[in-house]
Each structure stands twice: as C-alpha cells, then as structure tokens.
Amino acid sequence: MSIDATPTTPTPRTAVVTGGSRGIGRRVATRLAADGYAVVVNYASNSTEAEAAVREVEAAGGQAIAVRADVADENAISALFDTAEQTYGGVDVVVNAAGRMPLAPLADLDLDVLDALYRTNIRGTFVVNQQAVRRLRPGGAIINLSSSVVGLAFPGYSAYAATKGAVEAMTLVLARELRGRDVTVNVVAPGPTVTDLFLQANDEKRVAQLAAQPPLERLGTPSDIAEVVAFLAGPAGHWVNGQVLRANGGII
C-alpha cells in the first residue's frame, strides 16, 4: 500500500466585503480575518483606505486583497468575484456593507441624489447578491446591511429608509429562493453607529440625542456590528436564516 505524503494546502474560507475600506465594512473585514477568512476588501474610490485595511489584516497574520468596483456595476462585480475565486479558490461569505446616506426631508431631497442613493443601496445590493447566489459554496452566508431607521422612522431619513426597506425585502425573499443550497441569507440592521458616514450626516446635538436613546445609553460601534456579522457568517450562526437582526442596543 502506497501513501501519498505530499502535503495539501486547504483552500481558505473566503469573504467578500463590499464597502470594506472604512466604517462598519472595514471592521467586518478585520473581524472575519481574525476568524481565519481570506478577505476581499471591495471599495469604490478610496484606495488609500482600502490598502490600509489590507495592511491591518496582514499585520494580524491574515490574508486580504483590495479590489475596486462599483457595487451597482454588474460587470465590475462579476470581475470582483472572478478575482476572489482566482486568488483564494472560491467564495463562502458575502457581506454587503457599501452604502450611501444623504439626509433631507422628503420635500427637499434632490431627485438626482435620490437616484444615486437608489443605485448604490438597492441596485448595488441586488447586483452583489446576484453574483453571490451564483458563486457561493455550500455552507456559505450572505449578509446584507440595513438600518434600524426602517422601523424608527426618523425625520429626514425617508429616502435612506426606503432603500433599506428594499434591502430587507429582497433579503427575506432570497433566503427562500435558496432552498436546498445550504446558504443562509440575513440582514443586520444597525442602530446609530459611530462611523464617518454617521458623524457627517448628524450635528453634535443630534449625535448626543441618539446616544441617549438606547437603554445602554451609548452609540453603537463598528465592532458591535462586526461581532453580529461574524456570528452569522460562521458555523454557530448557520441555523439563523431569513432574519433581520436589529443590532441597536435596544433603541425604540
């Protein structure tokens, strides 16, 4: 009997994180890397931040690459998944954290801004999920980012909340369309979370008001949200499917 002693290198589990250069997406990328995932950090324009995210992963002993792509461009996203497969052998987890958040009363919002918002938040989610469905290996997970503002109905958030309501709707339908695939599809809906996007959209007074609302009496952090995403991405969370998890400290 002969024994093949040639060592084999297992293909790493791989995660694609859109909007992975900053904010929640960046923390998700580093958190998944800590769990052993090779990470594809997608970004729209800020290559400096994207490369910094890659270096952060590598400094902790992980594997990562940065890939520029507009999430709403189906050809660019298809190429991103091609790169992930060619580099790491396949894709297991997709976290769609890319998004825009312009705020204004419904009566005042410029319709060009509305169209750009819908292109990124709705079409972008649809395009990324479409590629994920076609590519993910069994045991995988798709995790979309929504917002607790869908239920909180803060004034000024009508357009943004509408896009995130659409994200939640398509996610719940997709979970049912993937029957028999062993791929879960869930939404994480953060409450007010300290990111550049959040701080740019709210003045100091509003930030203080939002921080006081949850029973925990603080704003969320990207790490709070990344822990929820990591749970859903891993084997411990694989029985959770077709759900919206409102990670907001109990804000009502």
Rank of each mutant, 00 (worst) to 15 (best):
Ile3Gln: 08
Thr9Gly: 00
Arg26Leu: 13
Val28Gly: 01
Arg31Gln: 11
Leu32Lys: 07
Asp35Gly: 13
Ala44Phe: 07
Ser47Lys: 15
Thr48Ser: 15
Val54Tyr: 02
Arg55Cys: 13
Val57Tyr: 12
Gly62Trp: 11
Ala72Val: 06
Ala76Ser: 08
Ala76Met: 02
Phe81Met: 01
Val91Tyr: 00
Ala97Gln: 02
Arg100Thr: 04
Met101Phe: 13
Met101Thr: 02
Ala104Ile: 06
Pro105Asp: 10
Pro105Gly: 03
Ala107His: 06
Asp108Gly: 07
Asp108Met: 02
Leu109Gln: 09
Leu111Cys: 08
Tyr118Ala: 08
Thr120Leu: 06
Phe126Tyr: 15
Val127His: 05
Asn129Gln: 12
Ala132Leu: 04
Arg137Gly: 09
Gly139His: 07
Gly139Val: 09
Asn144Asp: 13
Leu145Ala: 14
Ser158Leu: 14
Ser158His: 14
Ala159Tyr: 05
Leu174His: 12
Asn186Lys: 08
Val188Leu: 11
Gly191His: 04
Gly191Glu: 06
Thr193Phe: 10
Asp196Asn: 10
Gln200Thr: 11
Asp203Asn: 11
Lys205Trp: 12
Arg206Cys: 10
Ala208Asn: 05
Ala211Lys: 04
Leu219Ile: 05
Ser223Lys: 12
Asp224Val: 00
Ile225Asp: 04
Val228Leu: 14
His238Ile: 02
Trp239Val: 12
Ile252Cys: 06
